[in-house]
Design a protein around this nucleic acid. Structure first.
Lengths: 226, 226
DNA sequence: GTCCAAGCGGACGATCGCGTCCACTTAAGA
DNA sequence: TCTTAAGTGGACGCGATCGTCCGCTTGGAC
């Protein structure tokens, strides 16, 4: 208590510094959404209305910036997992989890790449969080399988497959999310033990031609060349 | 006849030029496989043992190089579609087609991105080929649905969804293809009208952590930083 | 109001990829 | 063998991005 309210020598952070840090985070989300996480650092700085040095002081590496920008989304993912575990019906929990994470990837452009980028990190703190997430998800899977709702041969690693594939889809397409919803629905259906035919969301208007990809790799926005 | 065997003024192509062109194509496939299609042109040139100028003369743009390097694979795709149409069982044809294209994407690293990159192109020649491919695939889908094997709500555009998602998967993972096979199997299963539970290929050993992705976008190889 | 260190911004040198230009080499017809 | 134009290679200029350095500004304690 005293610790958090007292202004100590260590605790002094100038108001403008804190404000700038926040501005940078907001700008980063916007810029990453528009140009992908490879966008020049200078662009983020300009957008935030600060100098490059300021940006680099707060976030020494691009990685730190990405992590900072999407910390909130990562938090949401973690919460979704907790809620899924707490759900009375494990299949409901499972389905909800996949859909929540995918929806997040879909809505916050730039997040998908960041989401994936966050995982190889081996900070002891992060490693711990990741291990816990993996353990929890495995528990969820086992429960859903025990309930006879999730197919027995589903493997926890399949989540990685799904998320990676889905990530690419939403990053590559400046879409309303139709493709994403379509893919998720297909996959969730084949994950069900009974694999009943449930209605799918409407098909996308996509043609192969409609990909906004030229020479660039699919992960890149091409807003600059448009 | 005479036209093809006769050496005309227009036809003269020096032997070394032809040889270099071929070397460049081979080098391009190797380099693109290793570093992605964003790899520096100079790297391709060095690998081919030719100068940059030579490379640029044969392929004025990166796009032309990519197209040239993977022309054979595109050809294979086209043939697969033709064969699928000719198959007695339309579902067999459909399945075969998806698996062939995905296998191709899986085996020839760098091809997936190239494959997608090839489509937005609007050369009249290419546009025609593409239109035909779309028409043929739609026919195949209708037949498979009429046979009661493919679910009625499958839409031809779903192919684009599948290929894009799959493309990202194989590009991002320096994998033995387990993830790719897994995804394809899941999807094909949910494409079946009956959605019977058939055995899946074995699960991958993947963890979220195992993605070879740092700050880079998932499409990038990171061999340089390894 | 005064002071000073935390904070700031932008200039700068370094690095990298691109695509062109030009002087040299060589295949191949006569 | 001679000729010549197609073919070649690498140096070069350009532009983008990176990350640092340094002199100026300003919050906030006293």
């Amino acid at each position: 208590m005293a610790e958090s309210s007292r202004i100590t020598a260590r605790n002094r952070v100038r108001a403008d510094a804190r404000r700038n840090r926040e501005r940078v985070l907001v700008a980063a989300r916007v810029v990453f959404a528009e140009h992908g996480i490879d966008a020049p650092m200078a662009t983020v700085a300009r957008r935030a209305g600060v100098g490059v040095a300021t940006l680099y002081r707060h976030f020494p590496t691009r990685d730190a910036l990405v992590r900072g920008a999407f910390a909130q989304q990562m938090e949401t993912c973690a919460r979704a997992l907790t809620e899924a575990l707490a759900a009375p019906d494990p299949w409901q929990g499972f389905q909800q989890l996949v859909e929540t994470v995918c929806a997040l990837q879909r809505e916050e452009r730039g997040f998908p790449a960041a989401f994936l980028a966050a995982f190889p990190e081996s900070t002891s703190e992060h490693a711990q969080a990741r291990q816990r997430a993996e353990r929890d998800f495995t528990t969820l899977v086992r429960r859903a399988q025990a309930a006879g709702a999730l197919r027995a041969d589903f493997h926890p690693s399949d989540l990685a497959v799904v998320l990676l594939a889905h990530c690419a889809l939403v990053t590559a397409l400046p879409d309303d999310g139709a493709a994403s919803r379509r893919l998720v629905a297909y996959l969730l259906q084949s994950f069900r033990a009974d694999s009943a035919n449930r209605p799918l969301p409407p098909p996308t208007a996509l043609t192969l031609r409609s990909f906004p990809i030229a020479t660039d790799s699919p992960q890149r926005r091409r807003s600059s060349s448009a």
